[in-house]
């Protein structure tokens, strides 16, 4: 694969995220089968896959919940196994499940997460304020998370993931369960981080309408990576007019399977 050469480059030029030839097995199940993908700096990459495609396993490996046993995973050139600390310092994650303490205020939650990265005092307060500003919730700093709507809580999760100023952001199905308005605002915030601040983003989803023509797309299906490239390439290869049909063509899934 062409991305193989990327890992040879110096860290300065290394992609935000490099996953190379990673397989992972749970008992008899092969959750990931020789997966390789890359998130270049300042790029919005959509990881498309249905439930059970292996997205969560991939996220668990990249966030080093457990180690990859084969292949390599590098964040800005830092191997997540050998240089875990350096890699994790450059990585922000928005998990699918909620991670905030409902009974604590937004500010208390965010200060706790600053502490998890060793950031304290005035600097922590400054970053908390800035992160809330980015997601448009500055006026809610002293509210309890319990009193937020689903969309607002999601935005706080994004603010949380930005506190240590990572240059790579991973989001696992960040819009699941949100209404249309909230979805749009979450997508807008993250896209502006890519466009204006140069973050690299890996956005896992099964919602095809979240893909824009300028994005890179990675299609993961039943643990195997079936396509990686730009949207025009995807449409050209499959001879289809939209991402949803292209996905069907690539994976051989039917409409009923997609709905499930």
């Amino acid at each position: 694969m062409e991305m193989a050469s990327e890992s040879q480059r110096h860290t300065e030029a290394a992609p935000a995220l490099l996953v190379k030839n990673v397989s992972h097995r749970f008992g008899d199940t092969l959750a990931l089968d020789n997966v390789s993908l890359e998130v270049p700096r300042g790029t919005f990459v959509v990881l498309l896959g249905l439930n059970g495609a292996g997205k969560s396993t991939l996220f668990a490996l990249v966030t080093r919940l457990y180690d990859n046993v084969s292949g390599e995973i590098r964040i800005f050139g830092y191997d997540v196994r050998r240089r875990a600390s350096a890699a994790l310092q450059r990585l922000g994650v928005v998990f699918q499940s909620r991670t905030l303490d409902l009974d604590l205020t937004l500010k208390q939650n965010l200060l706790y997460h600053c502490a998890l990265h060793g950031i304290r005092g005035r600097e922590a307060r400054k970053r908390t304020a800035r992160a809330l500003e980015i997601v448009g919730l500055s006026d809610r700093a002293r509210d309890k998370v319990r009193n937020l709507s689903g969309g607002q809580a999601r935005r706080v999760e994004i603010a949380r993931s930005l506190l240590h100023r990572p240059a790579l952001l991973l989001l696992d199905e960040p819009t699941v369960g949100l209404d249309i308005g909230s979805r749009e605002s979450v997508i807008r915030i993250v896209r502006s981080l890519v466009d204006n601040e140069g973050l690299g983003v890996l956005w896992a989803t099964h919602l095809f309408d979240e893909v824009q023509s300028s994005d890179l797309v990675v299609i993961l299906h039943k643990g195997r990576m079936l396509f990686t490239g730009s949207v025009p390439e995807l449409l050209a290869t499959t001879g289809t007019k939209d991402v949803s049909n292209a996905f069907r063509a690539v994976t051989g899934t039917t409409t009923t399977e997609l709905a499930a």
Binding site: L65, A84, S85, A86, L88, V93, T99, H117, G118
Partner: peptide
């Protein structure tokens, strides 16, 4: 189950 443990474990400390 919620993910609070996950955020703890992605902290860069050992």
């Amino acid at each position: 189950e919620t993910g609070a443990m996950r955020t703890l474990l992605v902290s860069p400390f050992p």
